[in-house]
Design a protein around this nucleic acid. Structure first.
Lengths: 222, 222
DNA sequence: GTAAAAAGTAACCAGTTAGTGCATTAGCGA
DNA sequence: TCGCTAATGCACTAACTGGTTACTTTTTAC
């Protein structure tokens, strides 16, 4: 009759901690659940009640920590950008040969989209709202600058080594690297119908990655 | 005190027609208004009442003609695909030299996205819903086949003429042509923040189109 | 040990939202 | 001109939705 392990926190792995209340953990659970929901339904299509449920938290907590549904969305979006940019920086491409570095970046971008499908949907959702949440974020800008300069460096090194042609705009290249992966994946559902093939089959994904690497390499070739 | 010209149909250019009831016209107005709304807010974010208002029609009419909000969305999506595919067919690329034909297609795709921004947003919205509306459409599949075969023909002709390399998958090429334009435009809001430049400025658009044509040409070059 | 602060809960509210039932009216064919 | 059918309008609802109020329980600082 006395209170047992498994109380308010729910059912999963809550037995260990004697600390029933854990602000940080609750916050994280909300963030995780919200990321999934927003990615699945967009900002407008997501329901605060559902997010609270899936986070095994009370709806009031969402408003306590994030002020509003949009505040929550903004946090998640910001995190998503910081996450991908951080992962990119960890690639450490500077000590690789230019061609290898570029191929590695194309491969990374593709793999990241595959492993983090929410990223794409969150970005789509944000663009539907004309980037009004991202506009408020200063962190994202700082991280983005680092990212652009990373590609610029690779490109410069390649030109110096004579393996890339000169005059390729790093921003256009960046956009193109993202585009050829992003478009394929975000439109995989309509694409599979239009082209009458399963674009998400293992071989199809491998083929697309090969094609994308090829596309970028030909683009910068001298 | 008697009924005047401008009655139920609203205020704009309704004075001419003595026929107050016009099923076809009402239907068209609903379609137009809905296209705009869905493109602006997505399926979930759009409001049936708003669509009815903007169409200067009664909400009841939407349900009369299209059964449900989703039925309306499906019709609009289907129309959007038929429209772009029809426009593509009208390009008549078969009598052009292969390189010119391909460039013309890249240019057309870009221009079409620019002039019909709703197309992109509708497709995005449909992919968020895992293409459940498009799946039901048979027309789209027929039109799509014609489209793929168009690119296949150009590619084959180019290979025969020795101006394109062999072995390029027409579907991958198709996807890439769409991708490099689509991604740039659909993510123009977050993109303008990340890259700290106005991606929609006139010169920026021109530069991107040039870059895209270059990308595709290098991709198929022998 | 205790009191204040932090974390958490449940019930509730006011405004929306997709969808309907039903009455009304215009136009068309005979 | 009559009557039928398609087009239209209005009022309504049941379920939802973001957000809040008022309250309880746990943790922590002293």
């Amino acid at each position: 009759m006395e209170p047992v392990d498994e109380t308010i926190t729910g059912t999963v792995a809550a037995a260990r901690k004697p600390r029933v209340r854990d602000a940080e953990a609750t916050k994280t659970r909300i963030l995780e659940a919200a990321k999934r929901e927003f990615a699945k339904n967009g900002l407008g299509g997501s329901r605060v009640d559902v997010i609270a449920d899936k986070a095994r938290a009370n709806k009031r907590m969402i408003y306590h920590y994030f002020e509003s549904k949009e505040g929550l969305f903004q946090t998640i979006l910001e995190n998503a950008y910081v996450d991908i940019r951080t992962a990119e920086q960890k690639l450490n491409l500077d000590h690789l040969a230019p061609k290898e570095a570029l191929e590695r970046l194309v491969r990374f971008t593709w793999d990241y989209y595959i492993k983090n499908p929410e990223f794409i949907t969150l970005v789509n959702s944000e663009n539907l709202h004309r980037a009004k949440h991202l506009k408020k974020s200063e962190v994202v800008k700082v991280y983005s600058r680092k990212f652009v300069s990373m590609v610029t460096t690779i490109l410069d090194r390649g030109v110096a080594a004579g393996v890339f042609r000169a005059g390729v705009d790093p921003v256009q290249l960046n956009i193109t690297i993202a585009a050829i992966g992003y478009y394929y994946l975000t439109n995989r559902f309509t694409g599979s119908i239009v082209f009458e093939r399963d674009l998400m089959a293992k071989e199809a994904l491998e083929e697309r990655l090969r094609f994308n690497i090829d596309t970028i390499m030909r683009l910068v070739a001298p």
